[in-house]
């Protein structure tokens, strides 16, 4: 399991048991864990010094335990656009989802629960590192619920919205097909329709997937 050995990761989580667990899990899966830290100031210092591929960041960290991690992550995105960010938290908050979704590609926002399904969880830093998205299903539900959707998205059929929601989570066509119990060909057709309806330029497919998701999330 050394397929991610080139990915250099830092972990910012203030709860020691979880932090050590994450370090062990990611190291076990072939990631190079450069540093594990417990506060936003150390995170900024580490990113500046080491330039990791991905920073895994807990939202609530010292000193006030509100959303320091989120603020730091958004600052890092601005200062180091090539460092991808995977934010995780006990709660999904709509304002955080909107802030992160508006930040561009290469972003992830997961509930902490997702580390329980280790196989899926370790895929998230890989997707984020390659410029994709790794959004929690809960994030997608909330962003759909936040009634700020525009006409562009309203034009999509229910099935197309479902497919787009799965794309937002960062899933491949085959994974979407398995989840919705339809054929991969049907998924491809829906994806093509989504691209057409959202009027997305013809570029390599993966890039268009990210654009579709962003347009969707931006409302």
């Amino acid at each position: 399991m050394a397929e991610h050995e080139t990915l250099r990761v830092v972990i910012a989580e203030d709860f020691a048991i979880l932090r050590d667990g994450l370090v062990q899990l990611l190291a076990d899966r072939g990631f190079a864990v450069l540093q594990s830290i417990a506060d936003p100031v150390s995170l900024e210092r580490t990113v500046a010094a080491d330039h990791p591929d991905v920073a895994v960041v807990d939202i609530r960290m010292p000193p006030t335990f509100t959303d320091e991690g989120l603020r730091t992550a958004i600052g890092l995105r601005h200062d180091y656009p090539d460092v991808r960010i995977l934010v995780f938290s006990q709660y999904i908050e709509t304002y955080a989802a909107e802030l992160l979704a508006g930040a561009a590609a290469g972003i992830g926002y997961l509930l902490k629960d997702r580390v329980a399904d280790v196989g899926d969880f370790v895929e998230a830093p890989v997707r984020v590192a390659s410029g994709g998205t790794a959004l929690d299903p809960e994030v997608v539900i909330q962003l759909m619920g936040a009634s700020r959707r525009t006409d562009a998205v309203v034009g999509l059929s229910n099935r197309e919205r479902e497919v787009l929601a799965h794309m937002a989570e960062g899933r491949t066509n085959s994974a979407i097909a398995a989840s919705l119990v339809i054929s991969e060909g049907a998924v491809e057709k829906h994806v093509a329709n989504i691209f057409a309806k959202l009027d997305l330029p013809s570029t390599p497919t993966d890039h268009r997937r990210v654009l579709a998701v962003l347009r969707y999330l931006e409302g």
Partner: peptide, 19 residues
């Protein structure tokens, strides 16, 4: 609700989005 620690509006947005 933990979002209340950031501000009332953030907490209400999440509340509305989950409705």
């Amino acid at each position: 609700p933990p979002a209340l620690d950031t501000c009332l509006a953030n907490a209400l947005w999440t509340l509305a989005a989950r409705s």
